[in-house]
């Protein structure tokens, strides 16, 4: 689905990525891990063609984005759904209009049918029908994220890119959200790429991950594989006080 080869990113003179290699396969739920400031979000922006890397190759849907024409790029944009960290709903539109926007940009549709589709997406991410007419500032953080997710899946994308989907949510909402992502990806055959700090999300939802540190990928693979990474930060991440809890949780799950 997505392949990054030797991606180098610079902001001014500061080197963010020294050469990143990532492979996301079809039907993966892929997590990008790393400390704050390690350039995870930047990597996501590069995949989304919002930022150009200084050098390196990015292959989306089996096509190098350097060779992609504007039409190709637009077709990529039709095939993915994106949710940013702060949900970024259009604040001047109601939730229903927010979700309808990507559809209406591409096709004309009968009002009643459109409403039906939007209501279905709302229900799919676990929101009440009443939310349809509400505005983003009337929603809680968790509902806003769900609404943003509903907007991201409006066009039935193959690929879902999520930037910190569970940050800022309470554990119950976060778990709820994790389940939503998991169920959706199973139901709709989605490939999911997400940037996350959340151990819960990582163990519960993801099946593959990579660790980004000092501008390179330390390790990539299944969660078990990368939890054996020989690195201080990774060890602290998996086996620090917060990590231990999850190791236990994982063991229980295996039994």
């Amino acid at each position: 689905m997505i392949r990054l080869r030797n991606v180098v990113t610079k902001i001014g003179n500061r080197v963010i990525h020294k050469g990143v290699n990532i492979t996301v396969n079809k039907n993966d739920i892929y997590a990008i891990l790393g400390a704050s400031g390690s350039g995870k979000t930047m990597l996501l922006r590069e995949m989304l063609m919002l930022v150009k890397p200084a050098s390196g190759t990015i292959i989306l849907f089996n096509k190098d984005i350097k060779d992609a024409s504007e039409d190709d790029k637009n077709s990529f944009r039709d095939r993915w759904g994106v949710m940013f960290q702060s949900a970024s709903l259009f604040t001047s539109l109601s939730v229903g209009e927010n979700i309808a926007t990507p559809i209406l940009e591409r096709t004309k549709m009968d009002k009643i049918l459109l409403k039906e589709i939007v209501m279905f997406k709302l229900s799919l991410v676990g929101l009440q029908p009443e939310v349809y007419n509400m505005y983003p500032n009337e929603l809680s953080g968790g509902m806003r994220k769900k609404a943003a997710l509903a907007r991201a899946i409006a066009k039935d994308p193959e690929l879902l890119l999520l930037d910190e989907p569970t940050s800022g949510l309470d554990p119950v909402s976060a778990e709820d959200f994790d389940n939503t992502i998991k169920n959706l990806s199973a139901a709709l055959n989605l490939t999911v790429v997400m940037v996350t700090h959340d151990l819960d999300t990582l163990f519960h939802v993801a099946n593959r991950a990579c660790i980004l540190k000092d501008g390179i990928v330390l390790s990539e693979g299944s969660i078990d594989e990368i939890s054996k990474t020989d690195d201080d930060w990774a060890k602290k991440f998996f086996y620090g006080e917060r990590g231990i809890k999850f190791q236990k949780w994982k063991q229980n799950r295996i039994i």
């Binding site: 409403k115 279905f120 229900s123 029908p129 009443e130 349809y132 709709l188």
Partner: peptide
């Protein structure tokens, strides 16, 4: 069939009044 079941489950007939 999978898709049908998912959609069927979440499809609402009631619509919020405006």
């Amino acid at each position: 069939k999978n898709l049908y079941n998912i959609v069927k489950k979440h499809k609402k007939d009631t619509q919020p009044k405006q």
